[in-house]
Structures are given as C-alpha cells and as structure tokens.
Write a protein that binds this DNA or RNA. Structure first.
Lengths: 352, 352
DNA sequence: TTGATTTATTGGAACGTTCCATTTATAGGC
DNA sequence: GCCTATAAATGGAACGTTCCAATAAATCAA
C-alpha cells in the first residue's frame, strides 16, 4: 500500500536501509551495486509504490527520453501508418514516442512545438503543416534539438528529410496511364504551397512531355487532399468541353473521392475513367474497384525516420542525410484503357 | 542570438537587471509586477532565446500540464476522430494532449502508461487494449492520477467511462433489419473479451428476442474488428446450411469487409444481403453503397471525455460520473428488405 | 514626522534526481 | 599485521523552477 504523498528515492532508501545514491544507481542498472543490495532495493521500490520522476532526472541530464511526432493530419490513415512504423523502431529502443496533431494548422503547430520544447524533447519527427512559415523551426535549431521532416519538406530548410520519390512515383503513374492509351490526362487535388505537390505534379508533367502528350491536353485541378476534394475535382473536370479520360490523384483519399463521384454519375471507375492514387494506403487494395496506386512504403519510411532520429541523438548532431525512398506502381483495377483510342495507334491530339 | 548553453531564468534576470523571482512571476503572468518591469523582462526573454523548462517547474508543482491519450488502435479512423474531439477542448484550455498508441497490445500499454506516469501527467484518457489485466491501472489509481476510459471499459473497474449507448445502438440496428423483413440475422466481428462486444451483442440479442426472432435463427461469428475480420466472418456465414440474409457488424471496419466480400462473390450489398455498421465513421457515408450505421458522435464523446478530465483535474478528484452518449441509426443504402420474405407477413421460422 | 498600509521586488529553501569526490568495507600481496 | 588495490556505498552539490517570507519603496492617515 502506498502512502498518499508520492514516494521518492529517499523513501526507498529508508525502506531498504541504504543511501539515496545507491537507490539511484540501482534505478540506472549500474553494475557497481552488489546484486543482493540491488534485490533489496528493488523490493523496496515495489513496496512503496514508487514512480520514477523523469522530470527531476532531466534537470541533470541534457535532454529527456521523449521523442515527439508532430503530424499534420491524424485522420488521414496514411499518417497513422507512418506513426506505426516509427513506433516499431522506438519501442525496441525503449522510447515511447508522443504523437501530437496539428490539424494542418500552423498556429496550432507553433503551440505544439513550443509545448514539446518545454518538455525538453530529445528529438522531433515532423510532418509540417501547410503554410508553415520559414522561421517556424528556428527556435528548435537554436536549441540544438534534432529534427527530421517526414513525408513533407519546407522549401528552404536544411533540416533532413525522409520522403518518397514523389517525382518518380508520379512519372510512373502518368506513364502507365499514357501506356493504356489515355491522351487527355488530369492531375487532381493538392495545392501548390506544398513542396510534395510540386514534386508530384513535376513528375506527372515530365511524363506527359516525354511521352508526347500536348500541354493543352493536360488538366490540373487543385483541391483539398481528401475524399471531398476528389469529388470536387471530378465535378470540375467533367464540365470541361473536352474532359480528361484519366486522372492521377494527389493521394489516395482524393482518388477515393473521384471514384465515388464517378459512381454517382453512373460512370464505372476503371472502365469509363481511369484513376490512379498515390501513397497506396491499406484501403486501396480493399476498394471497389481496387485502386491502382503509387506505393511509397509508408511504414518503412517511418522506420527510417526513426532510425535517423536515433542516430542524430546518439551522435549529438542536428544534421543528417536526406533519404528518398523507392516507390513503385501497384497496378490494380482502377484504370483500364482509354476506350476511344483503344486498338488505334497512339494519336497525339485525339479528342473524343 | 542565443548562447550555446540553454538560458535559464537567471540569465534573463541578469539581462533585465531584476531578480530570478521577478522573472518567474512575469512568466506566470502575475499581476504583482509593474507593467514596465514586465515589458523589460519579456524583452530579455526574447533576447536570450529562452525556453521554459517545464520539467523543472513540475518539480515544485503537483503535476504537469500534460494530458495523455492512450489509444488502442491509431490506424482505425474512428479513434482519430475521437482524438480530434478531445484536442478541440484541450486546445482551448491551453493544453497539448500527447497521444500514444498501444496497438491493442497490453504489454505495450503497460510501457506506455509507465512512461506517461514518469512524466507526471495531469491525467489520462484511455481506450484500453484488448486483454488488459484488471490490475493494469492500479498504479495510476494509487498515484491518484485522474483517468477516464473512452469508448471501452474494463469489467470491474471504478474508473469513469465515456461511451456510447452500445446496447441501444445495437437494438436499433437489429430492429431496423427485422423491420425490413429479415429473419435470419447475424452478428459479425468482435470478441467476447471486450465489454463493448457484450453490450452490442446484448442489444442485438434483445431486439431479436423482443421482436420474435428464434434464437436458432441468430448467428454470431466472432472475428477481428477490421476489414479482414469482416471478410472472414462473411465467408464463414455463407458456408452455413441456412445462411443469414442480414448482418449487424461490430463496427464499420467489419462492415466494409463484409461488403467487400459480398462483391467478391458477386452479391450486391444492400440488395442481396443487408449490412449495418457501428460507429458511423466518415467513410461510411462515402462508401458504395453508403453504409447504414449506428452513429455514436465520436468527436462529441471525445469532447465530453476531455471536459470530464479537466473537471477532475481541477477538483483534484479521481472519480466522476459515467457518461453514456446518445446514439442513432443513420439509414443509408446498405440494407434493403429480405427478398424471400418481401411482401409476406413476418413468419417466425421462415427459411429460404 | 512617525507609524501603518500598500505595492513591487527579492533571497532562500524546497522539489527529486544525477554525478562526482569521498569514505568505508573487503580482499590481496608481502 | 600492514599497506595497497579494488569493490561497494555514500554525502553533497548541482539542475531550473516555484513559493513563501522578508525586504524596500512608495503612499497615506494621523
């Protein structure tokens, strides 16, 4: 039974008949302590219902054992997967990562970062919110806290980045659509204030250019990176005089929205309109039709980010190499050939 | 420009030409300080690049301003919604909740709880992992840390619970299916070691009993609470000699799996087999066909849990009232009438 | 002017650890 | 039996805050 006031190492010391220093050493698993003494102390720890006070310990140490994960949108299952990958690594290092959500809000992000700094975090893995100001991470840098960006990056920052090869992923996806005979292509969702967006759109554009799609046949519709955004993008696209026959979506959520909107209009995704997603979240495989998507190995990137973080902490540095993860296109059922060009040799300007 | 070693209130004091106590008071926004002095101090704080050390402060205070959210499955969007609701409330109280994932693993949960206790959390909102041992929260109770359970509860525990009215939700859903003429009903997914499962299954069973469904016409298939679990449940059910024509699923994830499995077998969810979900996650509305589901107002429950938590902290108590949230059935397109009994008056034992 | 009252500010003692420099106990060498 | 070397345990001074009691300065009533 524990006393009302919380026990300290002094209480343990008294109980075990040793000094507080001995207790401290036992707590740290020091080999300097005689085994029998250690046993005695551990029993006392149990008896008094002791809870280690990490805050007090941190006062003497340079930093805590807390690592923060700052995530811009927890409701996107993609980020949950990322978190799961990181947790795997940290768990085996005896660290519990704390996750905080910024809900894509830079002001909120500022608060979250401040709060984490106040806890003396050992390091931070961040997927920055949209519209993050350039100076947002200056304080962290000044304080010498290791930070790595996961999935997203900031335009001018020197903070290391762990991200998939967005350019190549988008290129592969676009090439696949073009290979299926599609000539009027769209890029749906996302917005240009995101570096990721630039990269993905860049890969898409490059594929179009290299593989002979006229710039005038390419339609880019910005929008929310959610199902809702996808629905809106499709609606917009179908009002065009010469609507696209296929779309690469900024991410899977957008793609799901697009497929939904197609069905609502009586069109069959895959057969009547080809759609490719990005990220390959677990649901992609389980969708109807199963979504063709660019797989980025999210959990793997999470693991990688965690490893880089651990290494930075260990070597007391705030710098590390970027890591661009390999991607590959997982072809499923959401994109069939263009019905209009089917069988015919690829014609550059071929309209409906 | 900040010096390499991190600044303390003493550095600020020197810079501003006041005592450390004055700095401390300014930091706490005390009204005892002359406005001009406060301004001077705040400038010094900015100049030296000061970062508040909450760990040191906690040493004097009873607890930190950290609230932990311990969640059993972050990849289930349902819990992300819960988290979002809580965050709304805590944000306005100037608190950043830290989320930790237990991945439905009691051992991991133990580690997470230990780690949070060591940080001297002010309180904990927990959705306990499956298979949590009765004593898992004893240490928390002993330490007098306020804990509330969200969504899930433990069999014998006295910890306050914020959860939806599972029994009634399941009753409503089953009654709806029965009203549509279904006579052979199934309950899919979940497992009996969860109290929530007992509640939902209980409501389902009561509806069957009250509304004249023979016990022999009720099929209960336990399974994982995921898409995969749903797929497995349907496979099992369809191998029966007299398979059900409708199912209430433990949650939406299971329902999505069931719909998927139906499609794979060439059956149309809604028309050929009625399915109802539970939780009404955002995707339910956006599914194809849109899923009829029991809406539990997840974010609202999250807010409620957060409010209860704040009140507990404020009044220094570890007890609070349970809160059972209202539910309602959102009817969409995933459950049509039973084709076999359609038009006929309800017959009790009517087989295919 | 003097003492009482209010307003601003301050020093010092915690808080619960860690870590260094010592001390004490144990064993080994001769 | 004495000195030295090693092993085990210990006391004390940090660490960066808060909070209380005390001081100093300013205001006021008489």
């Amino acid at each position: 039974m524990a006393s009302r006031a919380k026990a300290t190492i002094f209480d343990i010391a008294r109980e075990a008949g040793v000094s507080k220093s001995t207790v401290s050493l036992v707590l740290q698993g020091s080999g300097l302590i005689r085994p029998e003494t250690a046993v005695k102390v551990r029993k006392a720890i149990e008896d008094v219902g002791y809870v280690y006070n990490r805050g007090a310990a941190n006062l003497r140490k340079a930093h805590s054992n807390v690592i923060g994960m700052v995530i811009n949108d927890l409701t996107n299952p993609f980020f949950a997967e990322l978190a799961v990958g990181m947790e795997r690594v940290f768990q085996s290092a005896g660290i519990v990562p704390f996750i905080a959500n910024t809900a894509e809000n830079p002001v909120r992000q500022e608060e979250v970062l401040k709060s984490l700094m106040e806890q003396c975090v050992a390091g931070l893995i961040v997927s920055p919110a949209r519209g993050t100001t350039p100076g947002a991470f200056r304080r962290l840098e000044m304080a010498g806290v290791p930070v790595v960006f996961a999935m997203r990056r900031l335009p001018e920052s020197r903070i290391p980045v762990i991200a998939p090869d967005n350019h190549r992923g988008a290129y592969l996806a676009a090439a696949h659509l073009i290979g299926k005979g599609h000539r009027r292509l769209a890029f749906f969702g996302g917005s240009s204030d995101l570096v990721v967006y630039q990269e993905r759109l860049g890969g898409f554009r490059e594929a179009c250019e290299v593989l002979g799609i006229a710039a005038s046949d390419v339609l880019v519709v910005e929008g929310e990176t959610s199902r809702r955004g996808g629905i809106a993008c499709l609606e917009t696209a179908l009002t065009m005089v010469e609507p696209p026959t296929a779309a690469l979506c900024f991410n899977d959520a957008v793609a799901f929205g697009v497929m939904l909107a197609l069905r609502k209009r009586g069109l069959e995704p895959g057969a009547d309109f080809a759609v490719v997603g990005f990220d390959d979240v677990v649901e992609a495989e389980h969708y109807m039709p199963a979504l063709t998507s660019v797989s980025v190995d999210t959990a793997g990137l999470g693991e990688r980010a965690a490893h880089v973080m651990l290494k930075m902490i260990q070597s007391r540095t705030t710098r590390a190499e970027d890591h661009i993860g390999a991607v590959n296109l997982v072809v499923r059922e959401s994109c069939g050939p263009d019905r209009r060009t089917q069988g015919r040799p690829a014609a550059t300007g071929g309209a409906a």
